[in-house]
Amino acid sequence: MPILNPASVQGMDLRGDWYIFFGAAMFVAVFVYALILYSVFKWRKRRDDDGSLPPQFHKNPPIEITGVVIPIIMVIGLFYVTYLREGVVDFLKPSPYATVDVAAYRWAWQFRYPGHNITVNGTPRNPPVLVMPLGKMTQINLYSSDVVHAFWVPAFLFKRDATPGYTMHFDITPTRTGLFRGECAEYCGLDHALMVFTVKVVPVADYDRWLASGGTTTT
């Protein structure tokens, strides 16, 4: 479950939002389910029912207003939480350690490391590898050359659409080494399901060596 253990600094920020919203959702669910179940069991028609009518009340303004005020307070709180987190995640920090140009096309990915003359190409059956340094900020410049795609690495709890005509920028700072699965999340035609890639997070020294060798050494 990536939301329990995200593999990036940004992912940890996003995870906080998941936890808060999940808590709020559970609170509402338990409260409302309790009310529904109570009504269903307490007020069901008994076998020995005398056929009389239940009380025919049809309004209760204080109760109804409570039902408006509580959601409004919750919604304002949740909006505040969202607003704070989103500012953190969407903010593009200056001076990244690494920069990668990611091109999405049907149905594979191309990763280029500007200034280092490294280009990694993939095919649908042979996913490319995106090498990233551990603990350092990598800026991704994302664009598409045909239809709308989306760059999604579940371990980072983050995705961004690659829309033709637009270039998107975002930061990722991995916190764990290892291989992570990446995929296209926006439906893009026939082999959409096979449009995957692998993120490989390596220690900074290994990354530098890999970069200096022009992408030929195994990391």
Partner: peptide
């Protein structure tokens, strides 16, 4: 939940 962009970044699509 999905109306919150930080969650939607993971949940969308």
């Amino acid at each position: 939940m999905v109306a919150s962009p930080p969650i939607d970044y993971h949940a969308e699509d």
